[in-house]
Simulated scan of single mutants.
Amino acid sequence: MTATGDVKNCRMAGPECNIDAAFSSYKDTRFFINLNGLRFICITMVLWHHAIPIDKGSFQLFGRGFMGVDFFFVLSGFLITTLLLREARERGRYSLRAFYIRRGLRILPVYFFVVTAVATYYIGIKGQVEYLQILPYYYIFFSNFLTEHIPTLTITWSLSIEQQYYLVWPALLLVLPLAARVPLLLLLIFINVVISAGWILIDPIAAGHLLFQLPNATYAPILLGSLLAILLDRKRSFVLFWWLLGSRWAALILAVALILALQLTPWNVLGWPNLLIHTTMTLMLAALVVRERTMLTPFLAARPVARVGEISYGIYLYHLIGLDIWMRILGPAGFDEGWMRLIGYSAISILLAEISFRTLEAWFRRYRPGGLPATTSIRMTEKQS
């Protein structure tokens, strides 16, 4: 295939494809077909984590479902940074105002709905007024630093991490010189890993109901996703990823490597195990975007799998509510065994998320700002991030 060949199909061909066509195809991609399926894997890990009791003495891999959130972070960092870089290339610079409006309309409606509904139940109906003291921290996305939580809202820590990232990174990227972006990200990742591993001791800062410390705010995976986006946006580094990961087998090999990393690393993942797992996640994501068709694509792009991935944000927010409903209604009847609980509460969570996606979230999606050129990745990010 030549540089003037079939650009659209180039990334389906593998390393033998002309690199100019491969890079052009990547930059023009508006929707990465593998990523909703990847989201399916992430949310399945999270659902498993909260359904099956963790036993350190059993097969360790099955106790690592919580790292599905870390994979979500890698994916989010990649997609958000890719959107910003592509909008800047099309328009000369990207609009912070439009970015925050898009993010707000995507994230806030269902998040505020869940927080308000849960708080109303526990504070207004059950009369547990002590939760009033910590409720404001959920609305300002500081729940990752809370020392106690309103029941079923513990998972909002990850949304706080993302919102803190959204607040800082797009503005920083706007003013950073091109040559400083990769070194800065590498430095921030290194600092995050070093502090969270305890290699450098920094006393936590207590402020009322908040405790500011790492690893309560682990930003390394979302920074790794951002780093990947920048590297793939540059032809020189894209070439390296293309030749290393452009094979149909690369994503599958890295998926196996990730499973091995989850199984074989020490139970306490802080430090180098965390970095190893997050780096493997980042490389697997790279293998799924530098090439459109991989050995995993038939599964990842299957309609039911992709649909669950598409509404995974809602599933994440509703799943502890779904678990609570399942345990209250069917738990006393004996339907609380691991697999039965996993299937039952997952079905409830998916149903709640589907209804929310088609009603509450759909209403707010109508107000997303448009006007971007057709060649940008806005559609990709609005559906996948």
Rank of each mutant, 00 (worst) to 15 (best):
Q163E: 14
P109G: 09
P204S: 07
Y121K: 13
F113I: 12
A197V: 10
L167I: 04
T116E: 12
P151L: 04
Q133F: 15
L186K: 03
L172C: 06
G104T: 14
P136Q: 09
R106T: 10
Q164S: 10
V118T: 08
L159C: 06
W199M: 14
I123M: 07
V115E: 02
A171L: 13
T120R: 15
S196T: 05
F190L: 15
P204L: 06
L187H: 02
I161R: 01
I125A: 09
Y122T: 04
F142C: 11
A206M: 03
I205W: 08
Y122F: 10
T154Y: 08
Q128D: 13
V118A: 02
T154A: 14
L105W: 10
Q163W: 14
F99M: 10
F190A: 13
W169T: 05
E162Y: 04
N192E: 13
Y131H: 07
A180W: 03
W169F: 10
D203M: 11
R106K: 10
L132E: 01
P136D: 08
Y139T: 06
L146V: 02
Y166S: 00
E130A: 14
V168I: 13
Q133N: 15
G208Q: 02
I140A: 01
V110Y: 15
I189V: 07
L174P: 10
F190I: 10
R181C: 04
H149N: 08
W199A: 11
D203V: 14
T154N: 07
G127C: 06
L105V: 11
A119K: 08
L173Q: 05
F99T: 13
I140M: 03
G127Y: 15
F99K: 12
V110S: 12
N192K: 01
T147W: 00
L159Q: 14
Y100N: 01
P183Q: 00
G127Q: 05
W199G: 09
L132M: 07
I140Y: 01
N144A: 08
L187M: 08
G104K: 14
Y111R: 04
I205F: 10
Y137G: 06
W199R: 13
G127I: 03
Q164E: 09
L153F: 01
Y137R: 02
V168N: 09
Y138T: 10
Q163D: 11
I125F: 13
Y111M: 11
I202A: 01
W157H: 01
R102W: 08
F142G: 14
A179S: 11
F190H: 04
I200M: 13
V114E: 11
Q164R: 15
G127L: 07
V110W: 15
A197R: 05
I161A: 05
S158N: 12
T154P: 02
A197C: 03
L187R: 03
L173N: 04
L108V: 15
I140G: 01
G104H: 11
G208C: 02
V182L: 02
P183F: 07
